[in-house]
């Protein structure tokens, strides 16, 4: 059962060290070890149970993808549907469309994030020794959006893109251009969402890369300086090459998650506008919509399983590649 039960149990069992010293040595050692194992197990139990309940049980639930689910009969009582749910998912053309959007948008975001975060990290590195205060201000500003929820971000975006009151349309009409109904034009959204995703997430990567740059042994730069290498050359010859392994590993790890879209970005920031689905409907929003507005549990579960399975294969593959380069950085 959940956390606190186990905590009480643990607290109630007498601390072993009170007993052991008075016992013969061999017995006490075995007993102590047993006791220690038991204590350790009980300590881990609450979290293990929670993982079981919220991660493992739902894994069993993937059978729903093969069921003709009726709530009254429960998960296991419902009739089997074979591959019917998958057949429909793939035959309607939706599967291809949402897979493309998911992979394409994630690829855009990964690339943009890498480009912007590396640039900012290198720039910050150039100014940080002379103006540490300013560098700190820059870094804080860039990191700030990281703490906002996607709901809050959707307000920010609305303030810019609202058709009648948005800043952008007022600027457009101000210079004599036609206003644009942003939330109806799907063509703009790959760009908009990339900008928003980078704005919100890049601070994280800037800090990651800056930390890696700081960790580079200063002797390299000293040596380069003595050889007369300028700042630009130091960046190209030392900093970037030193970062390459890290970049590759980060890329591999990002790519391994390419099948999972950030639901908040695609749901909240687009305000779930149906007109934007051609470019913004991703697997995660599709699964959510199939469940909540269609009530099609079977097909929704099928789409979810498809995502989980391909995602799993990608992670294992990426991990294998990372392990080949640097076992330290591998997940497992």
């Amino acid at each position: 059962m959940p956390a606190p039960t186990a905590v009480t149990e643990v607290a109630e069992s007498p601390p072993p060290e009170l007993v052991t010293p008075h016992r013969p040595k061999t017995v006490s050692r075995r007993q102590a070890r047993l006791r220690s194992t038991l204590t350790l197990f009980l300590m881990g139990l609450p979290a293990l149970v929670l993982l079981f309940v919220f991660s493992y049980v739902p894994m069993v639930g993937v059978v729903l993808a093969f069921k003709d689910y009726r709530p009254a009969r429960g998960v296991f009582g419902s009739a089997w549907a074979g591959l019917e749910n998958f057949k429909f998912l793939f035959s309607s053309g939706d599967a291809w469309h949402i897979t493309f959007n998911t992979v394409f948008m994630n690829a855009l975001i990964i690339a943009a994030n890498l480009l912007v975060s590396l640039t900012l990290a290198l720039l910050l590195n150039e100014v940080r020794d002379r103006s540490p205060r300013l560098a700190k201000v820059y870094q804080s500003a860039v990191f700030l959006p990281f703490v906002f929820s996607w709901v809050v971000v959707s307000y920010f975006v609305l303030a810019f893109l609202d058709a009648d009151h948005g800043l952008v349309n007022h600027a457009l009409t101000g210079v004599g251009m036609q206003p644009i109904d942003w939330y109806s034009r799907s063509g703009f959204w790959p760009l908009i969402l990339t900008i928003v995703a980078v704005w919100k997430g890049v601070g994280f990567w800037v800090i990651a890369y800056l930390a890696a740059i700081i960790a580079i042994n200063p002797e390299y730069y000293e040596a380069a300086s003595m050889d007369g290498a300028g700042r630009w050359q130091q960046m190209r010859r030392i900093t970037l090459p030193m970062l390459v392994p890290l970049i590759i590993i980060n890329l591999l790890l990002s790519v391994s998650h390419i099948f999972h879209a950030d639901f908040g970005l695609f749901f909240q920031v687009t305000r779930n506008s149906t007109l934007l689905y051609p470019t913004t409907d991703v697997i995660d929003t599709y699964v959510y919509r199939s469940l909540t507005s269609l009530g099609d549990v079977g097909m929704s579960a099928a789409a979810g399983l498809y995502q989980a399975f391909v995602g799993f294969v990608l992670v294992v593959l990426a991990n294998w590649l990372v392990r080949r380069r640097d076992p330290q950085k591998a997940l497992f």
Binding site: V62, L64, S300, G304, L305, A308, V316
Partner: peptide, 9 residues
């Protein structure tokens, strides 16, 4: 690494 997804949960 693996999750059952939204629907089963």
């Amino acid at each position: 690494l693996f999750n059952g997804g939204l629907v089963p949960s």
